[in-house]
Every structure is written in structure tokens, then in C-alpha cells.
């Protein structure tokens, strides 16, 4: 009996090993473990055995069944795996072919530059203020210490709509409006980005329409040193950590003292190159301490309040940052240009 069982296991193992398909496995399973399998005959024989031998042989039969069942399961698993492997092999593709082409949109480089500047100032606690592009002479000039007969008005040839209304020549009127609106005299830190207009013929460096960002801080404490620190921080954020700045005396009617701000050349690191005209410095913006006349015009007591203002041309910053040499490219909207940013 024992021999018979061993013989069966060996036979079964052989048949299982020779199985090529899942169906072959099922046949083998039917033969050894099905209702008409050889085990059934053995079970009949078991009935004829003396009672004391029954348990031992019963156990042996079960063990043999389990052994065969295990072999069958293993074979089945092996066959399934190889089937999936075949399938995977058949499905394999050439991953070196290109991906699908999604149209990529682009923000305008001026928008990118404005947003970059906005984010720097927002991080420093500034609010963003906006105002109309069609302005009154009062806000655009007079309240900014540029009375009607001021010679500096000629620096800013303007587009007039009536004698008293014009296209704003800078975003400074937004500063005036913000000061006027701040009746509580809360400490104010704002930036004013926007479109401005000057009556210049369009050429490589001039555009009758352009963008500015101006910043204004007014409280009881802000100093020229705070202006210098702010300017240094902006220069580093915009043009790189290793930048230095240099202030030079200048003149704007709305600030006093006024300065031009140079940043150390980021192309040659100050050694001198064509970009900085061999000076090592590049002029990037104008700034100064708010002129008392401006504070006074907005109803502030200049003996109590003080602060600074700065203003930069977005086109200039963008052109410097990206090496753009003709301002007209920024308004032509050639998609081969716009899509590079």
C-alpha cells in the first residue's frame, strides 16, 4: 500500500512536470484528485484493512493527496506567470518614441517680471495698489511737486486728453491716491505696478507705452538707510545674491534727496563689459526720500511723517534680466519670442 502510494506520487509528479498548458494541469488534477481518481480505489482498499491500521493508512493517503495537490498548484502558478510574461513581452513598446505634444501657454515676460517684483515686495509686507491710467493733471503732476510751470515737466512729454486730463506718465498718482485714502495715517508700505505713457517715438529703447513699478513707504521712522537696504535686497533678488548696489545723486521732483541706483554688472561681475559700458555698473532705477511737498499736498505733516519712494521701468528690468536688446520686441508679440518665457 505504501509502495503504491509512493508510486502514485512519482507518476503524478511526472505528469505534472510534462504539463504544457493550464488544461493539461486540469487533466492531471482530474486524474489524481477527481472523483474517479486512483485514490478512490485506494479508499476502497482502506475499508478492507483491519481497524487498527486504518488511521495510519488514512493519514498516508491524505499526505499523498496534499503532496500532489501542492505540485499541481505550483505548476499552475508557474504556467500563469509565464503566460503573463508572454503577454507583457508582446505588449512592450518603444519608449524612445516622443511623448504627445501638449500646447504650452506662456505668460508675457513683462507679466513675469512684474509678478516677480510683486512677490518680493509682498514678502516684505507691501500691499499692491492700482489706479486709473487716465489721470488728472492734479494727481499726475501737481500733487507730486510738479506745478504747472515746473521745468521738469518737460522731461515727461505727455499724451493729453484735455488740458487737465492725460494718460498718466508714471504710476506715482497711485501713491498720491493711496496717501489721500489713508486718513488714519497708518504706516504704509505699497507698490504700484501699471501701464504708463509718454509721448516718445517708438524705437529700440523708447516705447510710448510701458510699465512701471513704484514703491512707497511712509511712516514716522523710515530712513535713507532703510531705502538703501530695500534697494540692495531687491537688486539681489532680481539679479542674484552676489550683487552690490551703488547710489548716485539725482533729481526727481517727488523725492529729496533723490538717487539713481546702479547694480554691479551681473554679466562681468563688475570687471567691465559691453553691457555695463565698461563701468562695472548698470543703472536700474531711481529712488529717494519722499519730498515734504508731496507729503504736505496729501495732508501729511512732514515734520512727523517721512519715508521713501522708488520706481523702476519693468521693460528695462526685463531687458536686462533676459538680455533683450530692442524694447519693441516686448510689444510685437511674435510668438517665437513670447513663447521663450
Amino acid at each position: 500500500m505504501k509502495n503504491k502510494l509512493n508510486e502514485m506520487i512519482i507518476q503524478a509528479e511526472k505528469s505534472i512536470m510534462s504539463c504544457k498548458t493550464y488544461n493539461d494541469v486540469l487533466d492531471v488534477k482530474a486524474k489524481y484528485l477527481g472523483k474517479k481518481s486512483d485514490f478512490n480505489d485506494l479508499m476502497q482498499e482502506l475499508k478492507n484493512l483491519p481497524n487498527e491500521e486504518k488511521p495510519l493508512f488514512g493519514k498516508l493517503i491524505n499526505e499523498a493527496k496534499q503532496e500532489i495537490s501542492k505540485l499541481i498548484d505550483e505548476k499552475r502558478e508557474e504556467l500563469e506567470k509565464s503566460k503573463i510574461n508572454d503577454l507583457l513581452k508582446a505588449q512592450a513598446i518603444d519608449i524612445s518614441l516622443p511623448g504627445r505634444d501638449f500646447t504650452l501657454g506662456h505668460k508675457h515676460v513683462l507679466t513675469k517680471t512684474v509678478e516677480e517684483i510683486e512677490d518680493i515686495f509682498v514678502g516684505l509686507g507691501y500691499e499692491i495698489k492700482e489706479g486709473p491710467e487716465i489721470e488728472s493733471d492734479l494727481y499726475n503732476f501737481e500733487m507730486l511737486n510738479l506745478p504747472k510751470d515746473h521745468p521738469a515737466r518737460e522731461m515727461q512729454d505727455s499724451f493729453y486728453i484735455t488740458e487737465e486730463i492725460l494718460m498718466r506718465t508714471h504710476t506715482s498718482p497711485v501713491q498720491v491716491r493711496s496717501l489721500l485714502a489713508n486718513a488714519e495715517r497708518k504706516p504704509m508700505k505699497i507698490i504700484c505696478p501699471g501701464v504708463v505713457y509718454r509721448k516718445d517715438d517708438d524705437d529700440q529703447t523708447h516705447s510710448h507705452q510701458f510699465m512701471q513699478v513704484e514703491a512707497l513707504v511712509v511712516d514716522e521712522l523710515t530712513t535713507l538707510a532703510d531705502l538703501k537696504g530695500t534697494l540692495l535686497l531687491i537688486a539681489k533678488k532680481l539679479f542674484g545674491e552676489n550683487r552690490e548696489i551703488r547710489l548716485r545723486p539725482s533729481y526727481f521732483p517727488f523725492t529729496e534727496p533723490s538717487v539713481e541706483v546702479d547694480v554691479s554688472c551681473f554679466k562681468c561681475n563688475g570687471k567691465g563689459c559691453s553691457m555695463c559700458k565698461s563701468t562695472g555698473w548698470i543703472e536700474i532705477l531711481g529712488a529717494g526720500m519722499v519730498n515734504n511737498n508731496v507729503l504736505q499736498a496729501a495732508g501729511y505733516d512732514p515734520m512727523k511723517y517721512q519715508g521713501f519712494a522708488l520706481g523702476m521701468g519693468i521693460e528695462r528690468i526685463a531687458m536686462l534680466k533676459y538680455g533683450i536688446e530692442d524694447i519693441r520686441l516686448l510689444y510685437t508679440n511674435d510668438l517665437r519670442f513670447n513663447s521663450q518665457f
Binding site: 509682498v122 516684505l124 500691499e127 538707510a225 532703510d226 537696504g229 534727496p257
Partner: peptide
């Protein structure tokens, strides 16, 4: 302010130290 401008420019802008405004304000986009 004009006199201060004269003093600062003759003394040199390079001597002005760097600091940041100390009044706290809250910034952000509306």
C-alpha cells in the same frame, strides 16, 4: 531736505548703512 541732500552727497552715499523699514505692515494680493 535740500541741505540733507548736500550733506549726504558730499559725505558719500556709500557711507549710508543698510537696514529695512521696521514698522510692521501686512502685505499681500487683494
Amino acid at each position: 531736505q535740500d541741505i540733507i541732500e548736500e550733506i549726504v552727497r558730499i559725505n558719500g552715499y556709500d557711507k549710508i548703512p543698510v537696514s529695512l523699514p521696521i514698522t510692521p505692515t501686512q502685505g499681500g494680493l487683494n
